[in-house]
Simulated assay, not measured.
Amino acid sequence: MKVPLGILVPENQTQKNQIQKHLSENQYLITVGDRTTEKMIDFELIPSLQIVDGQEKRKKRIPPKLENATELTVDNPPAEITPQSIELIKKAFTLNSPVRILVNGEEDLLVLPVCVYAPENSVVMYGQPHEGLVIVNITPEIRNKAQTLLDLME
């Protein structure tokens, strides 16, 4: 995941107005990562699906606050994508928003199954360490690229 799947917004430009330029009306917003999720909630851009692990750069932190979310939990070890994680992501897309998946382990690589199974008109956001925010509009090309990367991990 060293190469961003989408547009990289540099850290010093991750303000609400810069992010909104990349969003369209009624888009299904998905965040992966505690800091990214917290930033979007602070901007009042409430993600429909949030995947967090209670860590930032390998340090424990309190997950971002959110009212009225359906919370699901899954075990996903670092550097892995478990079948249970994939199934829970698929299930999350069928539930009323907002949904939060709290990962015991690490959520970073879950960007891949999210990109494969996200509904049409979705946008995925995740942090690129020390660089900024990655914004990925889900297209058939992105789904194929994410699926190819997932297949390489099996």
Rank of each mutant, 00 (worst) to 15 (best):
I86T: 13
R35L: 08
T139D: 03
K90F: 04
A146T: 11
E44C: 05
P129W: 07
V3N: 15
D42Y: 12
L88S: 01
E11A: 15
E107A: 00
I7G: 07
L150N: 03
Q55V: 02
G6F: 08
D53L: 01
P119L: 07
K39D: 03
Q20C: 14
L95R: 05
M125I: 10
D34V: 11
K60V: 11
N68V: 00
S48R: 11
E56T: 13
V114L: 10
L149W: 01
N137V: 09
Q13D: 07
V136I: 14
N17E: 14
Y28G: 04
P140W: 00
A79W: 09
I89C: 00
L23Q: 02
P47A: 05
D151F: 10
L133W: 01
M40S: 02
H22F: 13
H130R: 13
P63G: 08
T37N: 00
Q15T: 15
N137S: 12
M153G: 04
K59F: 10
I138T: 04
K145H: 09
I142V: 15
T148M: 09
V52D: 00
V134P: 03
S122T: 09
T36M: 00
I101W: 07
P10S: 12
L133A: 06
Q147L: 13
L88N: 03
T94D: 03
P140A: 09
C115N: 10
P119Y: 07
